[in-house]
Amino acid sequence: MLIAASVMPFLLAPLTLGSFLPSLPLDSLFSTQGIMVLLLAAYAGAMWMFLTSAPKVYTVMVSDLEIARQLYEGLLDLPVAEVPLHYYYNYEQTLGAASVDPLYMSASPSWSNKMMNSGNEGLWYQLKKNTQLHVITGASLGSKNQQRHVCFDRECLDLILMRVEVRGLKFKIRNEKPLNFLVKDYEGRVIEVAEVAN
């Protein structure tokens, strides 16, 4: 038994919005409550896209910003990065400020004022595709007035050490856990790069 059916009328029929929606009455979808639910869903989707596209940011505190610029831009050849959008809102400035080891802080009493001003101060570099380095002042000088760069994230220091090795700079690992190594720049300055243990 063979049944003949024509699909042409179905393909040529105009499709309406109701043909894509489940069997909900359109008046409930376009009510105040329905529109609020649609707006909340759109907002949640936009926030998810914003947060998943935001770069991971590592922060390094240094004792001298100009020497840090010479190291990261000159010797390590890191590309300068734009300040991520989520850093304009200063939410990260209060994270970890109370748990910083005083040994790594400068003696300047105005340190907290410098730190809390704005998230776009300091230097910004691109470490990897979706990973940035934020260099700020705040670390004290090391022994023999060595420059000191401190960071809370081991992964950040591993990326910096890998860059030092690739660029062929002289370095010496002083300690593995927490990571602490020395880098010598072309002017003979020794820069201590240290992980701060939480």
Rank of each mutant, 00 (worst) to 15 (best):
D64G: 01
S112I: 06
M61D: 05
L103A: 13
F50Q: 07
A194G: 00
N145G: 11
R167K: 15
A194L: 03
G188R: 06
G18N: 11
N175E: 11
E155M: 13
D153Y: 11
M61C: 10
S6H: 10
E92V: 09
W124H: 05
V37A: 14
F171I: 07
S31E: 10
E73V: 00
C151H: 02
N198A: 07
E192W: 00
V166D: 03
D101P: 00
I67C: 03
Q93W: 01
T94G: 11
A68S: 09
A4L: 15
G34M: 01
K184G: 04
H86A: 08
V100I: 14
N130L: 10
V7M: 11
Q126A: 08
E176G: 06
V193L: 12
L127Y: 02
Q126K: 15
W48H: 09
M1I: 07
N90Q: 13
K177E: 13
V7I: 11
A81V: 03
L15K: 15
I67N: 04
P14L: 06
M36D: 12
V150C: 05
N120F: 09
I160R: 00
L2R: 09
V193F: 07
V193P: 00
Y58K: 03
L182T: 06
Y87F: 12
L38N: 02
F171K: 10
Q126W: 03
E92L: 05
T52L: 11
K144F: 09
V60H: 00
G138T: 01
M1W: 03
G74L: 04
N113A: 07
I136T: 11
A41T: 14
K129T: 12
N117W: 05
I136D: 04
L65E: 05
L76M: 01
F50G: 01
T32Y: 04
D158Y: 08
S108L: 09
L141H: 04
N90V: 05
R163M: 05
Y87W: 14
W124T: 00
N90R: 14
K129Q: 14
I3E: 15
I160V: 14
S106G: 09
R174T: 05
P102Q: 05
Q147S: 03
F10H: 08
G188W: 04
R189K: 15
L29S: 01
P9S: 03
V164T: 10
P79F: 08
A81G: 01
H134F: 02
Y186I: 11
L24T: 13
S6P: 02
N130T: 12
I35S: 10
R69S: 09
D158Q: 15
A97H: 08
N117L: 10
L15F: 12
Q147F: 08
P79T: 13
L161Y: 13
A46V: 13
F10K: 10
N145C: 11
L157Y: 06
S118Y: 03
F20W: 06
D101S: 15
R189W: 03
K129N: 13
L85H: 13
M115A: 06
E195Q: 15
N198R: 08
M162H: 12
V62H: 00
Y91H: 12
Q147L: 06
M49Q: 13
K56M: 15
M115G: 00
C156H: 04
